[in-house]
């Protein structure tokens, strides 16, 4: 699957040309028809021209989807894979699959809405810590009715960003949820669950302002969230664009960053520049490894042996 940059650039140009050509033809034809109909005095032709534009763009999207996908897959299987291999051991990377729906649902952190998708699945070891991450998109169907009784349906994003799962360096028995701004009023996913989460006030007033903590057992909340860890979470949260949520469950740490970003994506309209690509991918990988580094997840001092 490993392709040279020239081959990938050719795929990009092919996809970009199809989109550009299709768009130009669609727009030109529509404008031409619109002008002709206006000259002939048939104003219904404008609607026809508009419909033609839409149809033309849809056909362009359909025709370009295969070459676009070919380019994106080649990009990911070459540049992204190469960069990931340089950071993670025992790497498994699949751009087309993501986390199973139940992995996210079982954390009880998210209201799962009506539409779920996940891709760019990464699994590997960093500093001997098991790491998994994928892009996750959760949407809710919203139906609105206007004053004339017409109903329209659209999807609103509940979560779009990266979801990561790390080994946690402490053994704990009860679950803990830490919700950052943007998730305060989210419909919580633990309705009807047998686990009874209670809001816990930590002794750090600034942390309480930035996050809401829900725990099955308050002692476990204080055990996991040491003053030092709270300080490091605050620092990380301030350095990240987007809302942050953390869930400690089954001796794993789940981290969700809702930043409306799809990681490791390339644009068909940008000429490939290897050094820029490597830098861009490295910064996205850094987002993952930062959690291990900054939260000292590789410190196994508290892993019990007795």
């Amino acid at each position: 699957m490993d392709k040279s940059i020239e081959e990938i650039e050719r795929l990009r140009v092919k996809a970009a040309n199809i989109i550009k050509t299709g768009s130009i033809i669609s727009v030109s034809l529509s404008v031409l028809i619109a002008i002709l109909t206006i000259i002939s005095g048939n104003f219904f032709g404008i609607a026809f021209a508009f419909a033609l534009l839409i149809i033309g763009l849809v056909i362009t999207m359909i025709v370009s989807s295969k070459p676009s996908k070919e380019f994106k897959m080649a990009y990911k299987n070459t540049f992204v894979l190469k960069s990931l291999k340089s950071v993670f051991d025992d790497l498994e990377y699949n751009p087309e699959r993501g986390f199973d729906y139940n992995v996210i649902k079982n954390t009880g952190m998210m209201y799962m809405g009506d539409r779920y998708s996940s891709n760019d699945y990464i699994k590997g070891k960093y500093k001997n810590i098991n790491v998994e991450q994928a892009d996750v998109h959760i949407e809710e169907e919203v139906t609105t009715t206007d004053s004339d009784g017409n109903t329209t349906t659209h999807y609103e994003t509940l979560f779009m960003g990266q979801w990561m799962i790390f080994d946690f360096n402490k053994s704990f028995s009860a679950n803990l949820q830490v919700c950052g701004k943007g998730f305060y009023n989210a419909k919580r996913g633990n309705w009807g669950s047998s686990l009874k989460y209670k809001k816990v006030e930590m002794e750090d007033a600034e942390f309480n302002k930035m996050f809401r903590v829900y725990a099955v057992d308050a002692h476990e909340a204080f055990y996991i969230l040491t003053p030092s860890l709270m300080g490091r979470i605050k620092k990380l949260s301030n350095s990240i664009k987007g809302s942050l949520l953390l869930c400690f469950i089954d001796n794993k740490l789940h981290i969700g960053i809702s930043n409306n970003k799809d990681a490791f994506e390339a644009s068909v309209f940008k000429k490939l520049d290897e050094s820029k690509i490597i830098d861009s991918i490295a910064s996205e990988i850094k987002l993952i490894t930062n959690f291990v580094d900054e939260l000292n997840l590789d410190n196994d001092l508290f892993r019990k042996g007795v």
Binding site: E203, E220, F222, Y223, L301, F302, K304, G305, V306
Partner: peptide, 18 residues
């Protein structure tokens, strides 16, 4: 036992802070 005592100390601190 050293690892264990580190964990026990963490539980002690958590109990104290709570």
């Amino acid at each position: 036992l050293q690892k264990s005592i580190a964990d026990v100390e963490e539980h002690m601190q958590a109990a104290r802070r709570l």
